[in-house]
Design a protein around this nucleic acid. Structure first.
Lengths: 229, 229
DNA sequence: TTGTCGGCCGATCGCCGACAA
DNA sequence: TTGTCGGCGATCGGCCGACAA
C-alpha cells in the first residue's frame, strides 16, 4: 500500500517510528491489542513469564490494509538490541518518533451522516473537499457535472458521478455512490478520507466508527409540561 | 444433524460402516479426497512413508453439514486394531457396510431447472412431491394454497407459499422461494431433497451440482442448408 | 453550507396464465 | 405433467429540488 495514502487514512494521531530508530517493544501491550495474539512460547522463561520490555531497532516498516474492511495497519520488523530475540511483530501502534511531513498531497475527511449512508441517497460533498480535492467542474454546463475516478486503498477503481445542483447549489456524489456504500458496508458514523496525491490521482480511504459502543438513538423524554401519554 | 435427514441428503449411494464394525483405513485415499489434508507426521516412518492400510474399528460416527453450503459429510472415529495409532479421521466416504433402512420417512429429490433457479420465478413442485411430502391442500379453496414451514439441515426454518394454480393446474412454490435461492446460492443443476420425517416435519436438503465441469451452453451450429452470415 | 425529507420516475422483482414439449 | 415465456402490477432504488438548521 502506498505510504502516502496509508498516512492519510491512519490520521494525524498515528505515529510510526523511523526505520532504524530504537524503540521499546512491549509484549503485554501487543498481546492485548493485537487481533491475533502473538505466540511468546519460544522466549518464555521457566516461570512462564517473559520480560516486560525489549529494546529493539525498527528494521523495516510495512504498510498494509485489511482486504475486507480497508482498515490500515503497519507491520514493523524489530531487531532486538542487547536482549533475547523476540518473535516477529505485527501491529505496533503509536510509538511516536517521526511522521513524514512531505505533504504535496491533500486529504479531506468527512463523517458519514445517515443521509449519506442510507440507501436511496447520494453523498453530500463538503464544499472544501470539492474545491481542494476534486478536479474543477465546468460551471458553464447545466448542471455542472463530471465522473470521478477514485481508487480505494487496494488500488481498486470506483467511479462516481459528481454533480453540482439543487437550490441552493451543493456538491453531491450520486451514481456509483450506493454501490460503494454497499460494497464497503458503510454505516452512518464511519468516515471517508478523500485524497489527492501529488500526481492529481484521487484515492478514498475508510475509517470505521468503533462498532463497540455503537448506541441506538433513543427518543428524548417528553418536555416537562407535556402530560403523560 | 439428524441422521435421518442426513441420509436423505447424502443419497442412496452413500454407505457408512456400522458403529463397532471393522473397516480398513486407507490414508492415501483420505489425503486425496479430504478438503483439508490430514497430517500423517506422527506415524510416518523414517522413509517418509506410512503403511498403506490400517485395520480399524469404527468407534463412533458423527453426522455433519457444512454451515455455508449445507453439504453433508460424516466424521468417523477410528480405533486402530493390531497396528500403530492413526490420527483422528474426518470424512471417510463409501466404506460400504450397512445403511439404516428405518424408512418411516419420505424423501423426494428434484434437479433445479433454469426456470426454478432464475430470479423472478417460483419453483415447479413435482406432482409426486406435493402428493407424498407436503400436507394436502384444501381443494375447495380458489386457488388451493397453504404456507409450508420447512427446516434446512441446520434446523433453520424457511416458509414457502405452496399454491396449486394455472391451466392446467400445477403445484408451485412462490413467496419465499427466491429468498431461499439467493440465501443458498442455488443454480440450475443443483438438487433439492424434500423430506418428511415420521412426525410429519418437513425438511429440505441441498445437493450441489459439481461446479468443476460446469459447461456453458453453446449455440448449435447452423443447419447445413443455411447460408453463411 | 449541508442534513433531511417527500416526490417521482424507471428498473427490477416476482406472481400469473398461456402454451407446448 | 411441467419447463419456459411474456405480461403486468407492486415494490424498490435512486435522482431530484425544497426547505430549514
Amino acid at each position: 500500500v502506498d505510504s502516502q495514502v496509508w498516512y492519510a487514512c491512519a490520521g494525524t494521531a498515528a505515529k510510526l517510528p523511523a526505520v532504524g530508530s530504537l524503540v521499546w517493544y512491549f509484549p503485554q501491550g501487543h498481546a492485548e491489542q493485537a487481533s491475533s495474539p502473538p505466540d511468546f512460547f519460544p522466549v518464555s522463561t521457566a516461570g512462564g513469564q517473559c520480560p516486560a520490555l525489549f529494546l529493539c531497532r525498527a528494521a523495516a516498516i510495512g504498510f498494509h490494509a485489511n482486504p475486507d474492511t480497508d482498515e490500515v495497519f503497519a507491520r514493523i520488523l524489530l531487531e532486538p538490541r542487547t536482549t533475547l530475540p523476540p518473535p516477529f511483530s505485527p501491529e505496533q501502534p503509536s510509538s511516536s518518533v517521526e511522521e513524514p511531513d512531505d505533504v504535496g498531497a491533500m486529504a479531506v475527511m468527512k463523517v458519514l451522516t445517515s443521509s449519506d449512508a442510507n440507501n436511496g441517497g447520494g453523498f453530500s460533498v463538503p464544499r472544501f473537499c470539492a474545491d481542494s480535492i476534486f478536479p474543477p467542474l465546468d460551471m458553464a454546463a447545466e448542471p455542472p457535472a463530471q465522473n470521478l475516478t477514485i481508487r480505494d486503498i487496494h488500488g481498486k477503481v470506483w467511479t462516481f458521478r459528481h454533480i453540482y445542483r439543487g437550490v441552493p447549489r451543493r456538491h453531491l456524489l450520486t451514481t456509483g455512490w450506493s454501490r460503494f456504500v454497499n460494497a464497503k458496508k458503510l454505516i452512518a458514523g464511519d468516515s471517508l478520507v478523500f485524497i489527492k496525491n501529488r500526481d492529481g490521482r484521487l484515492y478514498v480511504g475508510i475509517r470505521r466508527a468503533s462498532r463497540f459502543s455503537a448506541r441506538v438513538p433513543q427518543a428524548p423524554p417528553p418536555p416537562a409540561a407535556a402530560p403523560p401519554e
